[in-house]
Amino acid sequence: MEATVVANAPFHFYTRLHLTESTGIRICNLNEMVAALQEVPGSCIYHHTHKFLQQHEYLSPEPPNDFAFWAKEALGDDVLSEKLSSIDIIQFKTIRALREKIVSVMKEHMSANSYAADRCANPGKEFWLLKSVSFIIPTSYVANNLAEFARILEKITINSIYFHIFEARLRLEKESNDFSNWIADSIGDKELADMITRLDPYTYALEDLRRTVIKLIKKRM
């Protein structure tokens, strides 16, 4: 694939900044959690399954979602924590589907373990349901071919990469991430697009993800 093949449509880079909003809802046990998770906005589910990607980039020992962390640290339920940690978020195309999975894991765990439903978090370890308010802002960066695309990826804010890989796919319910969609549709390189789609971004630190995507593109060029 020629690095300078002109895309059918340019890629406009956006960035994403966020603010945390509290619902004011405090959860003390798993029963309450299951009930609340079925009611709260999707932005709550998104917040508690994605916060770690940016906030805890340097605190990697923490489990990959807040529900798993709470199950272990507050409820002392290592088995539930492991089940929640193991939910493969990349498999879910919508927040709705991810919510249903989390709730079903919790319900199954309560059915199988009579102690689980009412075991209370210690005082101060309750779960506060929060949500992410995202602000999507266009940047001045526009790529017309793969070479430009790779050059911009090297210098653009990590928040932009986060938006196009994670948020656009799951929150805006696109089939794949924005990079793969553009490379397939506008550059016409389905194979490279698939390689990027097959990455599990949840297993990378954000800067590693940046490097990996750039490497795949450069190798292709």
Binding site: L17, P41, K131, F135
Partner: peptide
């Protein structure tokens, strides 16, 4: 990454913008 004045400035400006919006994706 989390507790410097620049993050605080960013969040205050997002807050100012947010009171004119009601959606979770702006």
């Amino acid at each position: 990454n989390n507790y410097l004045l620049t993050r605080h400035l960013k969040e205050y400006m997002l807050l100012f913008l947010s009171v004119f919006q009601s959606q979770d994706m702006v």
